[in-house]
Structures are given as structure tokens and as C-alpha cells.
Design a protein around this nucleic acid. Structure first.
Lengths: 205, 205
DNA sequence: CCTTTCGCGTACCATCGGTATGTCAAAACC
DNA sequence: GGTTTTGACATACCGATGGTACGCGAAAGG
């Protein structure tokens, strides 16, 4: 009579959720290298046998945590962008939301610091692209197609902007001055504005 | 009669140099986490006793390697900038040199990927600031003072640009398309140019 | 019922970073 | 120049870590 999937599958999903939640909390607070599997399974109320039944190892567990976090941020960015009809407003709103979301210290260390080091930059980049950076690339491509932004390869632009926002988020979370967020956003907005102020005076759409 | 410092100090310096050279090579090629102390000391022709006599541990050895690499890049950036009398040319030349230097795969993993994860972002940032990012901050401050760049806090700007260049360097080294470097530099130069195209039409110096 | 499956616990292992101590030659001293 | 001291290592060892092999017991399937 148990819920859909049987009591068996429910317990399995429950264990996996707890493992992800606790390891995410520990990885975020003390970093991947400083957290041992023993501590994770103790906090989760299970044993290493359970962990290795769900994941291929410590790095694979981290990968699952990272993917979850990235998709949360990607969803937030997409939702913020969708609230605006104009493509340009979608870009700026998405960037603003990304900056806000990435400043969360609970996500930051996992997404921006340990992610590339644990999985390697290429894999981290592919995951980030699939989850959130994709929205940036698509928004830029759309603006180029509409003539709002000067014709140019969007990939380099997307990487430059993505890197700029990642570093800015890390700085804001670490050195947290009162007006720093506003100053950073102002500087970033100037950079974005420069994209559409082309010498050929491209028409607004 | 031995050279300055005695045969004793010479041997010590030699051992330290070998340790730094081999660990740097191994860290660069396979990453901090995947390289064990046993492999480092074997490649260096010494034992763990020697390593722990020179460094406080694995992280401290990595710190020394990172510092060396960062100062090399910082020196290259400074030299490239000093070849130009005009402050604006100094900025662009420095950025261009940084991009070129950071694309080296031998330095990249240590400086941009493992650095923040092993030492923590704050310490990594402080070291990077002292070695190379300082030049960026100083150049921007000078341009603001000269009225070339619109008056604004330089710290957010420096972080945005630094992050943009770091990410671009990682992308270029990984996905290495033929025209990507030129495209990236063109996009970055447009960003920089936007800084001096202020609505108030600031005078060139 | 009886068998199979599978989610997980237990026991164990190799290797890791790190430490304590020994050793022997260069330096310092008288 | 003999003695003592210093210091740059090597050796031996330790606890903890990530990872593996295997056992168990309850749910799923017939």
C-alpha cells in the first residue's frame, strides 16, 4: 500500500537525499578536502556501505552535490529572466540574479572553488554550461541576432562575463563591504551597456 | 673556500630548488589532489624527511610553488607594461601579457584551479593581488586619477576584469580554437575601451 | 511459501599525509 | 686540531583516509 514505487524505493530515495543534504552542508562549510567520508556518513546516520551503494566514491558524491546546486542557480536565473519580455532586460536581470545567487556562501565554495579543482576544469565547465551559463550564451546570441549587440562570436564574450561574475561573487562574499555590491553591479552594467553601444549605431529591436 | 654561503647552504638551496621544480611539474600535470608526497620525493631524489625539513607540509609546498608561479607571471606583466609610456597602453599591454602567460597549461592548473581550492579563496586572492593583480588595480587607479577612466571604485572593476581574464585563459587553454584567442582579446579590448568612453567625454591625458 | 533482489552494515585493506627519532658531515668554538 | 654543536637530511613508524569484499535481512516477485 506504500506510496508509488514501494517502500523500498522510498527508503532508497530518502537515504540519497540525506546523504546529499549533509555532504552539501559539510562541503560548503569546510571544503571538499577537509571533509572525510566518515564525517559525512556519521552526520547522515548511515554507513560507508550506503554511501558507496549510491555513489561511486567521494568525487562522485561531490559531483551530485555540485549538479544539484548548479541547477538551483540555473533555475533561479531562468526564472528571473523570464519575468522580462525584452531580451536585453532578460540578460541584465539574469546577470543580477546570478550575482545574488552566487554570493551565497553555502553554494559558493562548492560551485566556484572546489568544483573545478575536484572534477577538473573541463568537466566543471561542461556542467556549469549545461546548468546556468547556457542562459548567458543564449541571451547573448539572441541579442546579436536581433542586432542589439554588435555581431561577434558569443563564446568569448560569455566566458569573459561568466568569469567576471564568478570572481565578483567570490569577492563580495569574502570582503563584504556595504556598498560593494552596488558598485560591482554598476561596473558590470557599464560593461554590458558597452556591448550595445556599437560605433555603427545598431538599431534597438 | 666554497662559494658564498658555504657548501652547506648551497646543498640546502639545491634540494629546495629540486623539490619546487618537481612538485610544480607534477602538480601542474595531474593536479594537487592526485599527486602524493611519495611521488614528489621520489622524482626529486630525496625523502620525506627532506621535504618536511624545507616545508611545513603538502599545502605549504604547494603554496611555495604557487607563489613562485604567480611572481613569474607578475614579472612578465610588469615588464610588458613598462615597455609603454602611456598609462592606457600599459593597461592593455599588461592584460594582453597576462592572458598569454595564464594560458600556459603548466601554470594554469596551479594558479587558477588548485590555488583557491587548496589555500582557500581569501589567501589565494591575497597572494594573487600581491603578485600580479596589483598591477591591474594600480593601472586602473592611475587612469581614474588622470581622468581617462570615469571616476568610480577601482576594486570592483579590477575583480571583474581579473575574473574575466582568468576564465578566458582557462577556456582558451582547454578548447583552443584557432581564432579564439584573437576573438577573446577583441571582446576584452571592447570592454576596456568602454571604460574610457564616458558620457562626460573625459579628456585624454 | 520460497527464491531472488537489493539496500545497506561490517570488517578489512592499501595508501596517504604527518611525526619522532636517528645519523653523519659541515660548521663553530676553544 | 680536537671537540662540540648545528643542521640537513634519512629511517621508521603512526593514525586516518578513501576504497573494497562480503555478509545480512527485509522487501519484491513468483
Amino acid at each position: 500500500m506504500a506510496a508509488r514505487g514501494g517502500v523500498r524505493a522510498e527508503q532508497r530515495a530518502q537515504t540519497r537525499r540525506v546523504l546529499l543534504r549533509e555532504s552539501r552542508r559539510l562541503f560548503a562549510s569546510r571544503g571538499y578536502g577537509a571533509v572525510g567520508l566518515a564525517e559525512i556518513v556519521r552526520a547522515s546516520g548511515v554507513t560507508k556501505g550506503a554511501l558507496y551503494h549510491h555513489f561511486d566514491g567521494k568525487a562522485d558524491l561531490f559531483r551530485a552535490v555540485l549538479e544539484e546546486a548548479q541547477q538551483e542557480v540555473g533555475r533561479r536565473v531562468a526564472e528571473a529572466a523570464e519575468r522580462h519580455p525584452d531580451p536585453w532586460d532578460q540578460l541584465t536581470a539574469g546577470c543580477r540574479e546570478f550575482l545574488a545567487a552566487s554570493t551565497d556562501p553555502e553554494l559558493q565554495r562548492i560551485m566556484l572553488v572546489d568544483g573545478p579543482a575536484v572534477l577538473g576544469w573541463s568537466e566543471w565547465r561542461a556542467m556549469d554550461e549545461a546548468a546556468s551559463a547556457r542562459h548567458l550564451t543564449e541571451a547573448l546570441a539572441e541579442l546579436v541576432a536581433a542586432g542589439v549587440v554588435a555581431p561577434q562570436p558569443v563564446a568569448p564574450l560569455a566566458h569573459l562575463l561568466s568569469g567576471a561574475m564568478n570572481e565578483a561573487a567570490l569577492w563580495l562574499a569574502a570582503d563584504a563591504g556595504p556598498g560593494d555590491l552596488a558598485d560591482t553591479w554598476a561596473a558590470l552594467e557599464r560593461m554590458l551597456d558597452a556591448l550595445r553601444a556599437t560605433p555603427a549605431a545598431a538599431p534597438r529591436v
